[in-house]
Every structure is written in structure tokens, then in C-alpha cells.
Amino acid sequence: MSTLHTVNKSPFSNNSLESCLQLCSEQDCILLIEDGAYGAVAHSPCAGSLQQASARGIGIYVLQSDAQARGLQDLLDNIEPTDYQGFVQLSCQHQCIQSWY
């Protein structure tokens, strides 16, 4: 069964995203929300593992409005911006939602 992982803490000050990446399975998705959006910038401490996760087929998204609000523009290539509708769709596509906070 697949899981949608939401992360709402910045990886610059918190290990939520790191832990999430360690335990993510192939069919899962990760959605960066709130301060979690900082994880999507080019200098993200998790840039490497996000890239690897993406290569393993894990979908990685960032909530566009949260990134926008924080002025985040140069996002990592493999991270797809999405909106609230996309958030709902992702929620429906997965059996469980695990919030990393």
C-alpha cells in the first residue's frame, strides 16, 4: 500500500525530511509543504537524497503557494510544483498519509 508523505519542516533545522527519505518506498510520494518547501531549494541539505529518491521513482512535489510565499524560485529539477487541487489528488491516490513534523 502506498503512502503520501508530507513534510512541513525546513531540512536546514530539522531532520524530518531526512527521516522521511530514509523510509520512503518506491510507490510513495513526498509533498513539501509550509517550511518544508525550503527543502526544495538548490542548496537543500537533502538535495542528493531527493535526487536519488526521484531516480527510484518516488514522486516529489512542493506546494507552489508555500514556495511562492517564501520567495523560493530556484527549485531542484526533480521537484514538481503543485497546488491545493494537486494536494487533494495526491491524498486520494494513496492509502495512507504520513505527516513528518
Binding site: 500500500m1 502506498s2 503512502t3 518506498s25 504520513q98 513528518w100
Partner: peptide
Amino acid sequence: RALLAQARQVLS
């Protein structure tokens, strides 16, 4: 990973 993957419900 296996524990989480088989769960019907996850409480965080």
C-alpha cells in the same frame, strides 16, 4: 519501510 508499507492506517 515494510512495516509502514503494510499499514492500513498510519497515525503520525
